[in-house]
Design a protein around this nucleic acid. Structure first.
Length: 613
DNA sequence: TATCAGGACGCCCTCTGCTGGTGCGCC
DNA sequence: AGGCGCACCAGCAGAGGGCGTCCTGATA
């Protein structure tokens, strides 16, 4: 193949600094957000740059350009990074040059159009001159970008004859890269190889082909001085943010702008520009009430509304009001319409918000992405991890005991603190208030559920009935403990065993009491064993329970078969065989539950298994 | 360019279940 | 005195509801 001859012309030259492209299938090196980038494929050493070295004089890298080529509508994106350089020489030869025009916006964004096949120029003013032309190559040997699997770029040191291996370009480069030479006369665009700083960059595109006839370039506004100076962190972010990878598709098609900092893409320049501001710390809008700053006027306005209490969006169904319309819509769904558009595919759960469904799904998958850094605990959402972290006091110390210049106000009273821990402790004094007071006695407690349970000591209500033995309890946890102990064959009780005499105790405190007199240290073991009286009693209960289970199961089975009357009769009459007046009620409820589950496909065998447990 | 509508994320809360400790009274 | 059941309580964790805030697509 013949080497590419480069004709370079302008004072300002746009150099292809780096090429990143999405290759054909199977060549992907990295794929993110639909963009696959080919990285760092260097040229072979024998590349010979036959170029217009004289045209390159004192070139200076000035602007960085990134180019995305869109060979097809939606699929692959070819990304180039260009840099503009300046040339003192105005010796320009335009023959064999392809032309690209660049519309520079605010010195940052550049969109490339293609009036001609290959030359690229900057459209900085109303009048274009050769000095503004940036060269992108051309020559006789042309290659289709679509067929380039590996692109390699070399910079040619200006005014230096091709001598180094690095500057031996094009042909072998192309060969190595798998370029396929196009026949002369085939319609094509070509960005030409360019020579500067011992690197020659080139990229070739096809023209007359919808796959390549539109290109978008973005030029950063960085300059040599900025590059030499160490920018501040914010500046660095901003500069990085300005470096984008853009894409322009076929005529009339949408452009896509890619953020180089995050995975954001947008087809709108305005949205893109607005997004880029999120990568800077620029917050020009100041709240005159608290001096807090905001990125946008809208955010400031919403914030000021929190000061003034202005909540323009009022709920028609209740007295709630909100700052934004979205809040009102969401509130309406939660409180009034109960519309839950996000439905779980694995259960009946539905939620108002997508994030809630996402969180819920983790209960199915078991995913626990939030790992505690101090123990093996992992949670399914951030809040639980945060709540868990309170159990690690060292974290606790750093977060809670640092001095806070800002006043930390108690949410329940006017008290103010400067230490978060003090605030929390103070607020606990409010929370620890025993707000629930019994109207029958002097008992008071902090939790309503405890008061509910306490009230039952006055009313005698025992709403929790054992389905197996009909024993009633005031608290569900007591019923559960009872059921495990006497009706669950798989239940293995914890036994606290005296290490001296071997006697077992069901509770540690009893062992402790015993050990004080026995002279042994208390030991905890899982050995079995109960008092004789207890064992005998348990055996009796189990015997009765087994009988009751069989009868009840019969009723359930009949219920499962659709014979509600028989089920009712079985559940009630058989239940009367056992002491306690609540069994029939409980059994009826159970029968109803069973029927509901039968409707969902639970088999009789499953029910019997449930009963056994 | 400003604004609206809606999504995404995070925070905080409640409800609930479970476990374990403690104290008391009865057998 | 030992054994046991019950009542009460604290603490942790699972699940989900509700809302504040920020961001973005669409549009006037």
């Amino acid at each position: 193949m013949a080497a590419t001859e480069i004709s370079v012309l302008s004072e300002q030259f746009t150099k292809i600094k780096e090429l990143e492209l999405m290759p054909e299938k199977g060549l992907k090196e990295e794929e993110k957000d639909g963009v696959c980038r080919e990285k760092d494929h260097r040229s072979p050493s024998e590349l010979e740059a036959e170029r217009t070295s004289g045209a390159f004089q004192d070139s200076v890298l000035e602007e960085e350009v990134e180019l995305v080529l869109a060979p097809s509508e939606e699929s692959e994106k070819h990304i180039l990074t260009l840099q503009t350089v300046h040339f003192t020489s105005e010796a320009v030869e335009l023959q064999d040059m392809s032309l690209l025009s660049i519309q520079q916006q605010e010195g940052v964004q550049v969109v490339v159009q293609q009036p001609g096949p290959g030359l690229l120029w900057l459209e900085e003013g109303p009048r274009q001159s050769l000095q503004q032309y940036a060269a992108i190559g051309i020559q006789q040997e042309l290659y289709s970008l679509q067929e380039i699997e590996v692109l390699q770029f070399h910079a040619l040191e200006e005014n230096v004859m091709v001598a180094s291996e690095d500057s031996k370009l094009a042909v072998s480069l192309a060969e190595t890269a798998g370029l396929i030479k196009l026949e002369e006369g085939q319609e094509k665009n070509q960005l030409l190889a360019e020579r500067t700083k011992e690197q020659l960059f080139f990229v070739e595109t096809m023209s007359g082909d919808e796959r390549s006839d539109e290109i978008v370039l973005t030029v950063s506004n960085s300059n040599v001085e900025e590059q030499e100076d160490q920018p501040t962190a914010g500046q660095a972010d901003a500069e990085k943010a300005r470096s984008t990878k853009n894409q322009r598709k076929t005529k009339g098609a949408k452009q896509t702008f890619h953020c180089d900092v995050c995975m954001f893409t947008s087809s709108r320049m305005s949205s893109f520009n607005r997004h880029m501001k999120t990568h800077t710390n620029e917050k020009p809008h100041l709240c005159h009430l608290c001096l807090k700053t905001f990125r946008t006027v809208t955010l400031l306005r919403n914030h000021v509304n929190t000061h003034t209490g202005t909540r323009p969006y009022k709920c028609n169904d209740c007295n709630m009001a909100f700052v934004t319309s979205g809040e009102l819509v969401r509130h309406t769904r939660y409180k009034h319409t109960h519309e839950k558009p996000f439905k779980c595919s694995m259960c009946k759960y539905a939620s108002v918000e997508a994030s809630k469904l996402k969180r819920h799904v983790r209960s199915h998958t078991g995913e626990r992405p939030f790992q505690c850094c101090q123990c093996s605990y992992a949670s399914r959402d951030t809040y639980k991890l945060k709540r868990h972290m309170r159990t690690h006091s060292g974290v606790h110390m750093r977060n809670l005991h640092a001095y806070s210049a800002a006043e930390l106000k108690c949410r329940y009273c006017p008290a103010v603190f400067h230490e978060r821990y003090a605030l929390i402790q103070h607020q606990k004094t409010h929370k620890n208030e025993k707000r629930f007071k019994c109207k029958h006695c002097s008992y008071a407690c902090k939790q309503e559920r405890h008061m509910t349970a306490h009230i039952r000591t006055h009313t005698g209500e025992k709403p929790f009935t054992c389905l197996s033995c009909n024993k009633c309890f005031r608290q569900k946890q007591l019923l559960n403990a009872h059921f495990r102990k006497y009706h669950d064959a798989n239940f293995v009780p914890t036994v606290y065993k005296c290490s001296k005499c071997g006697k077992g105790f069901s509770r540690w405190i009893n062992l402790h009491r015993h050990s004080e007199k026995c002279g042994s240290g208390e030991a905890k073991s899982a050995a079995s064993g109960k008092g004789r009286r207890t064992r005998k009693r348990k055996q009796t209960i189990l015997k009765e329970a087994t009988k009751g289970q069989k009868e009840a199961a019969k009723g359930w089975k009949e219920a499962a078969n659709g014979d509600e009357a028989a089920a009712e009769e079985a559940s009630t009459t058989k239940g009367e065989q056992f002491p306690g007046e609540m069994f029939p009620v409980a059994c009826r409820e159970t029968t109803a539950r069973v029927k509901e589950e039968v409707d969902e496909g639970v088999t009789c065998e499953m029910l019997l298994n449930m009963m056994d447990k």
